[in-house]
Amino acid sequence: MIHTHTLPDNKGLMAKLSDLFWRRPWVLLLALLLPAILWLGIIYIGSLVALLVQSFFSIDEFSGLIKYELTLKTYLELLRPANLDIIVRTVTMATSVTVAAVVVAFPIAFYAARYARGRWKVVFYVGVMLPLWSSYLVKVYAWKLILAKEGILNWILAKLHLGWALDGILSIPVIGGNSLSVSYIGTFFVFLYVWLPFMVLPMQAALERVPNSYLEASADLGAKPSKTFWSVVFPLALPGIIAGSIFTFSLTLGDYIIPQIVGSSRLFIGQAVYSHQGTAGNIPLAAAFTVVPIVIMAFYLWFAKRKGAFDAL
């Protein structure tokens, strides 16, 4: 650059650095990226790798100490019926929460994307964004209040003389229980509530991108509204739905707080990880358990990428 030659040579450090950045762009690039690479690479990836390595160690059954020899023994332990149960239970819960979130979120996203105008648009946008970002624990706490025996839900049901219906639902084996706050149904509702906004936003973004002319073309060609919906709108919204389901699915898989506060005492993957690393001190098994959601999510993300869900994020 010409001006670097015309300026006096006794420049400050800043200017010299600046010139270096200009002449060698990769130095600037490296300077920009290095802090994040160091931080995330060393602290985050480093810890993650250390954890994964530990899943190949095993615990000595007699002394309770970790044996530092590479083995797949700990992974075999995952296949024990009790542990397999935990995995199946968690995946089933994550799947049902995701399906329910799609069903509940769709009308909200559809209305917000295609019909809401002006002030209503803002109401819907802020109305989804606020619960998305607001405190996770406060939301869980609100549900503890709702589901309590003396709480609002039972009160409403009693006023409506519908207590028998709740009793009927709670008497269903497996998903029922003594009360909502100690049953899978309760856990399910809290999960659905807490992760719902994560489904609405990407769905709405995908729906907003469906061109109106497509819908008109479909109608012009004689399709009924339901046909237009299933053949045009839904396939185009699918990437958004999958993008949202990444969140609802992944967040449910790894959560250990909600099932601990609202739910039966049977464990979910997150709780199993937590208890194995804590009181049991069985880090290898805890590490092996964390591999389960990682593998499931890797497959899920691979599938989502193929469906173009990342463009909808």
Binding site: A36, L40, Y44, L48, L51, S250, G254, V273, T290
Partner: peptide, 20 residues
């Protein structure tokens, strides 16, 4: 690399850091 800490469930980040 930047997105991973929120794409993976929080407990994985937590346990990984704790063991590290």
């Amino acid at each position: 690399l930047i997105i991973l800490p929120i794409a993976l469930p929080g407990i994985i980040t937590g346990i990984a850091l704790r063991s590290a």
